[in-house]
Nucleic acid binder design. Structure first.
Lengths: 334, 334
DNA sequence: TTGAAAGCGCTAACAC
DNA sequence: GTGTTAGCGCTTTCAA
């Protein structure tokens, strides 16, 4: 396309149609009272000239960008990809486009992204599974007119929230309890390292202790939330602690990484080692043996986040908290 | 955050700092010659007031949005997720944000998305694995100042392209030839249905015939590019044609769906049925047996698309064509 | 039902 | 080095 081409503006259409630019503007936006005659006339001319409203000009005066930002730790993690799909579909249906800000599990990048963002860029922001601390996150979110977080509790005045587990670490504890019920005693934990307050090994040990389940802190290991790290950290964990009878993973990806390592180390799953994941991604049901994990409606989590954001963008600042229950899916690894 | 809050503008900073708004503008953009003294003075005031440039206003005058659109068939397909990651990382490094337009494998939605987009919304567009026909796609792309496609050939004046196989269907043919070499004769094909010109069963049969390999068209089946469809269509294909010795899949997702169906039907892989996929997603290496498929650098494909787009956005309209070679990865299914 | 004027917040171009 | 002026293309407001 030629770069020098004059962009068709309201003025061009108005001149050509023999009306004022206000009339054209009204026709294009379906606002105000316009005679049927003028309306069609303007429509025809606009069509012929190929008129397209200039988004920046409109935004400058209306202060609405029709854009929302979605901040995600890692879109190559199927868990997040599905959530994003839900976010985007719903936003699209309501006439919004999504600015994707993938942070690659890098807290610094998340911080930079959030700092860069402002209300002249987007009308609202969805922050999914933030990897930065409340101390950093909350002040940044406060600067935005409309905010929804996924998997992060927020002061009620900052934004609405969507959660996929009752409390952080809730699934890990459920998993351990289930493993205990099935007779496993030496239960390890692959804790996700996320730059933000997460459910630590300490929390894991303490919580289970209260339930009468004893966990050796040495059975717990910190691990970045990606497959390769699960494989590497999992291998080290199993080598150092061959006595482990079971491991709970922070997400399915790391659990499957550990499972691969376990198989290479000659462990027989589930007899020799039991495994529980956390978010039921497709791959988990397809490996052998299939992974016991927690299922939740990821698409709907994303869609709900979009809906809650929409409400806020429309001026309804009621705090809302949606909880999507997780369901233990028992498969071949336990 | 209070909605009524007055946004800090250049004027506010200028007044407060006792200079003109142009001086502030220059300081904020690091353009023109400004005395060190004024510069720091302005910076301090801007900082104190929390000044943030208004993106819409800037866009209105500069005609640059600093946004690129990335149109993708399905971000829950790990193949596309990785490409998108490459696109976004590279764009981000260059100061651009990415507008994600996921079309859910729906050609109508892709058409709608592309029609809606214009140069007041984004500075450039990357269309990945378009599912609409050239007749629809090319005219829409021509309206954009800067375009790059992934996996789609384009007239040289429309945009640059990034390809992950030599020709459409190239990998399927390579796969069939490889299967033939390993002794398989009755080779089926799970052809991706994509609303756009794809490599059809007819092409598959014809091309292989020229190589001396005979394929019965009844062994070929059309299939939407998602796991579930691969499972369903795969099951029907195998039930109707138990004589099949091997199947080539249009992508890894459908091939793995078919593999699941095959296992349920009691087929032993690879002895009783051999399988070849097409894009080596993580899951393919983790299933049992691991899938023979083609490997390519998906992240780099996306990153390259961003780079080529950047060149065009900077006014270098040289047509460029990048080809990322695929590599056959032989694993347990053959 | 239509139009004129003003201005959103910024930068380009030119003056001083 | 710094300021003034003139818009970018649109919608809001008010007048006709």
């Amino acid at each position: 396309m030629t770069k020098e081409q004059h962009r068709v503006t309201l003025e061009d259409v108005a001149r050509e149609a023999g009306v004022s630019i206000m009339t054209v503007s009204r026709v294009m936006n379906n606002t105000g009272r316009i005679s049927e005659e003028t309306r069609t006339q303007v429509r025809v001319v606009a069509e012929r000239l190929g008129y397209r409203p200039n988004r920046a000009a409109r935004t400058l005066v209306t202060k609405r960008t029709m854009l929302i930002a979605c901040i995600m730790p890692d879109i190559t993690n199927p868990y997040f990809a599905e959530i994003l799909q839900g976010v985007e579909d719903t936003a699209w249906q309501e006439g919004y486009n999504v600015l994707l800000m993938n942070t690659n599990e890098n807290p610094d990048r998340e911080y930079a992204v959030l700092s860069q963002l402002d209300d002249s860029t987007v009308d609202g922001v969805i922050a999914c599974s933030s990897r930065i601390s409340d101390e950093q996150l909350i002040p940044l979110l406060r600067k935005h007119p409309a905010v929804v977080t996924i998997n992060r509790v927020l002061p009620k005045d900052v934004g609405s929230i969507v959660l996929s587990q009752r409390h952080i670490g809730h699934r890990a504890v459920l998993a351990a309890k289930y493993l205990y019920q099935t007779g496993r005693r030496r239960i390890g934990y692959l804790q996700l390292v996320r730059g933000s307050s997460s459910f630590t090994s300490f929390d894991f040990v303490k919580t289970l202790e209260a339930e009468g389940i004893t966990i050796d802190p040495a059975w717990c290991r910190r691990c970045p939330p990606v497959w390769k790290a699960g494989y590497e950290q999992g291998k080290m964990l199993l080598e150092e602690h061959p006595e482990l009878e079971a491991v709970v993973g922070g997400n399915d990806l790391v659990t499957l990484g550990l499972m691969r390592a376990a198989i290479e180390l000659g462990r027989k799953i589930p007899d020799n080692l039991a495994l529980v994941g956390a978010d039921d991604i497709l791959i988990s049901s397809q490996v052998t043996p299939p992974l016991t994990t927690f299922r939740m409606d990821k698409y709907e989590i994303g869609a709900m986040a979009s809906r809650l954001l929409l409400l806020r963008m429309q001026g309804d600042y009621t705090y809302r908290e949606m909880f999507f229950p997780e369901e233990l899916v028992i498969r071949g690894t336990t």
